[in-house]
Write a protein that binds this DNA or RNA. Structure first.
Length: 994
DNA sequence: GAGCACTGC
């Protein structure tokens, strides 16, 4: 039977058995069958792959039939047990016969112009042996080359000198951002006042009339004539009169415009100037302004009295602001326990909760190889334990203690803190290592680093021989990197009995960690935090955004001083919430103490972000409306109240379609408690949850789904492969990723040429692993060498790696922002637009002003520059010399195609469909090609929001696909069969682009 | 004609 027909048959059978059939799986199964001496052996091999349930009769029947069709022609290629790589680093379990369970991929040479004998061509029946032998020779040759490359890397690493950069700029930036200078505090209050007043006035100018109407309506509704005091009644009367006056002005036309310019002037400015003509006539408006001023002053002055009243009297006067039925009803259900901190700064080290346990802890570490340490933030585990171990001599003989953190800022700031405590300069005995910055020296014994950094260190030092202790901190966060570290550390610990492994986590999950590390003991350290009272709603809230707004006002009106932190899911919600709050405050303004509403989310420009760190002016209250960023990454001082609607956005990844989407999901109990904890950092706090206690107990998951089960694993698989771990199916994961995700990652790596048909790492794959980007980007970069455009492609790669945060699109200047964006358009597509933006930014001398003018986020460009510099530095390492293609961009698009040939779509009569899966997709409206609709496009990513959108799209020539991925595409797939059916003006194929 | 939480190498 011809190979193609055979595979079609297998594919059909798999559809029956599994409901799915990957592109390469049939070929693999055929290869397995070829290598099997009997149907039983084939079944055994199938059992090892864990893809099929071999106990099922229909699977057994399938295996027998398959073996029969193949004809038992086992050639014995895969049976080459003799060349097993057993005994490679550290006894990490290798299984050469079924590496990854994908030992039977069709042969594939190294990229990109090879045309390997692929499974689509019928096997030449006369000489199958010769073909196998040839591919086998090629495979072995490539393995040799790969190992030679790895050896060159090792030699280079040995000769490399360690950089010391104690004056690291990013660290200073972080410190600057986290710390606000005292002078700022002094200038801040008047500035904030002024700004708030200006905002008020500006807005007021726009919709004065509606505003007044609304105010009057509000007052009538909220207060009713009878509860109003004398002055309040007169104020209402005043407002009504004002409304009538305003209506008159509107009719007055010309006169009104003249007055407008005088109506809303700052009193200071006015005082400094001559009274202008016509000022006398504008009495009423100016009167209003004066009144507004007075009201603000009044509100500010009233505050203390009101707060005192709230404390002393059971019925504070502001209670009336929100009627019972409009209020969110909370019931107190529990209290998070806390304990008081010591005041003294001098004795801080000794006063940490961990201090009394020092000797016990040190003894436990001496006694056990792996220790799980349970301690909340503030217990001092991160800063103290490494110092204790240093004092105990774990750093003798030049050995280091490594401590991992999930975040860069944490690694830097903790290292800085410890350096101070030890009285050394950062970068000497105590250092940190994060991406873009290695602040360590040969003297460094305590090394703080990000988890991803330690993972990378495995590449150069697979047994981590220079470390005596490794501590994985914040393990409960279960980042992709920490999860993989667990498996790797567990493995090397077996072979290095003297190595100590510490797993530090907040209270949750320690039992699971302990079980994973062969029942390691758990050492508990009490935390240090103020108690937080938890309130739940009586009934579920239908509209949590509205409930948030009401609750914030409610807290503001009824609760003693202290800032409020609100958790929402994303930028859009946050903007809406901020707007609503400001609107309500304006309407009720006169009788509310000042409320500063500040948003924060990752994509917010830095200067706006910095505002949340500025201290709240005396008498005012701050409301920070935040995403999850405030759950772990950013800590805001002064928060006493937390408002938690209980939702967050989570990325989910579908291996079936290779598509990721962001979905709003209920957060876990662990997250909810983490959020609540944010209220108890400076004083006893309160957390208001906008869901019921029952929902908390019964509807929320205990912990979030670990990232490893939600993410694309391409890079990870490539990294593990580079560490010599071939059998990923059986890798010791704390929580294994879904089988399909692993399979998809393996298939993609195979298609990219990073793995050979045996599932082994190729030379290309080894080089790709050196680049800290996702595999397709890595492939694109490596391919750029032969198209002579490494300079351009590096820029494209760097720009793509700053998540769609290049263009800034403020709500009030959407049109300007969009036209600025269109100014960057180049024919060819979005990747080239990004390249254009970057180059223009460089040409502007990295000007900040330029960024503002072009609605481009400077922070993103700076990050792109960092990424680019890092990649550029690695070019020599992967043995690529720089080249540039000048102004002809088609080589750039070809190089992109070499990496992203997986991501292609073609325009059909029914719109775009992906080439491989016929999945219906759309060009994102922000794309430069949105209107052009070229026939063949390549996309960087597919996201599912309102539709399935392709983001970052370029036009390609379908012929390129055969050129760069002959093993993946067949000519017939790429024919334009539907040419005549196409509408005339769309889908024109343009040869001379870019 | 949309609207993307957060990290990390």
């Amino acid at each position: 039977m011809a190979a193609a027909a055979l595979e079609r048959w297998v594919s059909g059978e798999l559809q029956e058995l599994l409901g799915l059939s990957g592109r390469h799986v049939p070929g693999y199964l055929v290869a397995l069958a070829r290598r099997s001496r009997s149907p039983e052996e084939l079944l055994e091999r199938l059992r090892d792959t864990e893809a099929l349930r071999v106990d099922e009769p229909r699977v057994q029947a399938f295996a027998r039939e398959l073996w029969g069709k193949v004809g038992g022609a086992w050639g014995g290629v895969g049976g080459a047990e003799g060349e097993s790589r057993r005994g490679l680093p550290l006894g990490i379990p290798l299984d050469a016969e079924h590496p990854l369970g994908f030992g039977g991929f069709p042969p594939l040479g190294s990229h990109p112009t090879h045309v390997g004998p692929s499974h689509r061509a019928p096997d030449p029946p006369e000489e199958p042996e010769a073909e196998w032998e040839a591919s086998e020779r090629e495979r072995l040759r490539d393995l040799e080359e790969r190992d030679a490359f790895a050896e060159r890397l090792r030699r280079r690493d040995r000769s490399r000198t360690v950089l010391t950069r104690p004056d690291a700029k990013a660290y200073e930036e972080a410190q600057k951002r986290l710390k606000v200078a005292e002078e700022d505090q002094k200038t801040l209050v008047p500035e904030l006042r002024k700004r708030s007043r200006r905002e008020y006035l500006a807005k007021r100018e726009q919709d004065k009339l509606e505003e007044l109407e609304a105010e009057i309506a509000d007052e009538e509704q909220l207060f009713g004539e009878e509860v109003l005091s004398g002055p309040e009644r007169s104020r209402l009367r005043y407002k009504r009169r004002l409304r009538d006056l305003a209506r008159e002005y509107k009719r007055a036309g010309e006169r009104e415009r003249l007055e407008k310019s005088q109506r809303y002037r700052m009193p200071e400015e006015r005082r400094g100037k001559q009274p202008e003509a016509g000022a006398e006539e504008a009495l009423a408006p100016r009167d209003e302004q004066r009144r507004w001023e007075e009201e603000r002053m009044e509100a500010a002055a009233l505050r203390f009295g009101a707060r005192d009243a709230a404390r002393h009297r059971p019925q504070p006067q502001y209670e009336v602001l929100l009627e019972e039925e409009h209020m969110v009803q909370f019931i107190s259900a529990s209290q998070m326990q806390g304990s008081q901190p010591q005041e003294s700064v001098q004795e801080q080290r000794r006063s940490l909760p961990i201090f009394p346990y020092r000797d016990e802890l040190v003894a436990a570490i001496a006694q056990h190889q792996v220790l799980v340490i349970e301690g909340e933030t503030g217990s001092g585990k991160t800063t103290q334990i490494p110092q204790y171990l240093h004092e105990e001599g774990y750093t003798r003989q030049g050995l280091k203690i490594g401590i991992t953190q999930p975040r860069r800022v944490a690694a830097m700031s903790v290292a800085a803190r410890v350096a101070v405590e030890m009285g050394t300069k950062l970068g000497n005995e105590v250092g940190y290592s994060i991406r873009f910055e290695d602040c360590t020296s040969e003297r460094t014994v305590l090394k703080y680093m990000t988890d991803g950094m330690l993972l990378r260190e495995f590449l150069t030092e697979p047994d981590l021989a220079s470390y005596s202790v490794l501590m994985v901190d914040e393990a409960h966060e279960r980042t992709l990197h920490t999860d993989v570290l667990f498996g790797l550390l567990k493995d090397i610990a077996r072979f290095r009995p003297q190595l100590k492994v510490l797993v530090a986590s907040a209270t949750l999950d320690t039992g699971r960690f302990a079980a994973f590390f062969d029942n390691a003991p758990v050492f508990r350290i009490p935390g240090r935090r103020f108690p937080v009272d938890i309130y739940y709603t009586k009934a579920p809230e239908a509209d949590y955004l509205e409930a948030c707004v009401v609750s914030v006002l409610q807290i503001h009106v009824t609760q003693p001083p202290g800032d409020i932190l609100v958790f929402l899911t994303g930028q859009e919600e946050i903007e809406a919430c901020v707007e609503l709050l400001q609107e309500r405050c304006r309407r009720l303004g006169s009788r509310l103490p000042e409320l500063l509403v500040l948003p924060i989310y990752a994509n917010l420009p830095s200067d706006m972000q910095a505002r949340i760190f500025q201290p709240t002016p005396p008498g005012a209250r701050k409301v920070v409306v935040a995403t999850n960023i405030a759950e772990t990454s950013v800590t805001i001082d002064g928060i006493v109240y937390v408002l938690d609607p209980g939702f967050c956005k989570q990325k989910s990844y579908s291996a079936r379609t290779g598509m990721e989407s962001l979905v709003v999901t209920p957060c876990s109990r662990a997250s909810a408690n983490q959020r609540a904890g944010r209220a108890g950092r400076v004083a006893p706090g309160k957390c208001f949850r906008l869901y019921t206690a029952w929902a908390f107990q019964h509807e929320l998951e205990e912990t979030p789904v670990p990232e490893i089960q939600r993410a694309d694993l391409g890079s990870l698989v490539l990294l593990l492969k580079s560490l010599g771990i071939n059998d990923l199916i059986h890798f010791d994961f704390l929580d294994p990723p879904p089988h399909e995700t692993l399979v998809l990652a393996l298939e993609q790596l195979y298609a990219l040429g990073a793995l050979n048909h045996m599932g082994e790492l190729t030379t290309l794959g080894r080089r790709m692993a050196e680049l800290p980007v996702e595999p397709m980007l890595a492939k694109m970069i490596l391919a750029s060498e032969q198209y002579g455009c490494t300079e351009e492609v590096l820029t494209v790669a760097a720009m793509l790696s700053v998540n769609n945060a290049v263009f800034y699109r403020p709500k009030d200047k959407v049109l300007h922002a969009d036209s600025a964006r269109r100014g960057f358009h180049l024919p060819g597509g979005d990747h080239l637009v990004l390249l254009n933006v970057y180059n223009q930014w460089v040409a502007s001398g990295h000007s900040l002003q330029w960024c503002y003018e072009h609605f481009v986020q400077a922070r993103s460009l700076r990050r792109a520059r960092d990424v680019r510099e890092q990649l550029e530095g690695l070019m020599e390492r992967v043995e690529i010399s720089p080249s540039s293609c000048g102004s002809d961009y088609s080589p750039v698009r070809k190089a992109i195609t070499a990496g992203f040939f997986y991501h292609t779509a073609r325009l059909t009569r029914g719109g775009y469909r992906t080439v491989k899966h016929q999945h219906s997709v759309f060009i994102h409206p922000n794309s430069a090609l949105f209107e052009e609709q070229p026939r063949w496009v390549l996309y960087h990513e597919l996201v599912c929001t309102t539709k399935e959108f392709m983001r970052q799209v370029i036009e390609i020539d379908s012929a390129w696909l055969l050129e760069v991925a002959p093993h993946y595409y067949q000519a017939k797939e790429l024919e334009d069969g539907s040419t005549r059916k196409m509408p005339k003006k769309v889908g024109k194929s343009r040869e001379e682009l870019g």
